[in-house]
Amino acid sequence: MSVQTQTQHPRRFLPKRIGPNLLLLIAILFMLVFILAPIAWLLISSVSTSKDLLQMPPNWLPWPPDFSRYRQLLFGSAGQNTTLTDFTLQAFRYSLRNSLIIAASVTLTALVFGSMAGYAFARIKFPFGNKLIYVLLISQMIPVAVLLIPLYITIGNLGQLDKLSTVIVLLVSIHLPFVIWMLRGYFQTLPAEMEEAALVDGATNFQVLTKVILPVSLPGLFSAAAYTFMQSWNAFMIPLIFTSSDTTRSVTVAIAMFVGRHYTDYSLMSAAGVLASLPPVLLAIFFQRYLLAGLTAGAVKG
């Protein structure tokens, strides 16, 4: 909405400050409703009693809110007559930390290797041309479901089952091709004159990459990092098959454990979902500053 208005009448919103601000406000509200409406239902479910969830129309504001699920997930133990066990609770508590380690390590590693290879594919002409990157890409397009058995055989033979490092390395190798491709696209948008000038000035190849290219690529690196972090945080199949214990199990696998064979406690699943999304959301609020850093760096160089 606001896009069209801006592009068609770019002048109109300049003198009058109210108009664009109102449009912006409407757009922000639309966005918040789009994102938050389902989450609101998740939050409501997480503080509802099982009786509240059986009402139609629903009890939108269960009062007083029932925080027993949160207490149970964080500090409590499993009660009687439920499909929940202490085993699951403990797995959940450890899994948040495991997932943070996995996602952060995968992101860092993929970013280092990905920016190196992405730069090479963007800026250096090889005799074999750019076809190599498509070889890498197609390897990522293969659904992981059919790779599990050979991977399991390989990892099992190497004696590396049930290790965080195994999950990290596997996720890096699965997501790296796309990171390379993304970063290559980003590096290609940078003007070639920059590095040529630096090379003439006597900078080494490595210096060109670390001192000239990477500093102006922060937005690109940030989006690649966000992509990798999200993919590894949400990864399910690889952690499911390659982790078995509390010290390795990812949050996705742990939360699936709340689904019972016949019966599932929706409120508990909702509370677990809320808790599981807190750490990455806090990280995002913190790290979004780096987007601004990217802007400043870009502005200085530009």
């Binding site: 699951t88 599990l148 399991y152 199949m237 499911l240 098959i241 696998v253 699936a256 689904v259």
Partner: peptide
Amino acid sequence: VEVVSPDDVRTKLQTA
């Protein structure tokens, strides 16, 4: 004892 969700037991077991 290794545990996963009831649905995932099959996936994990069959892979192994």
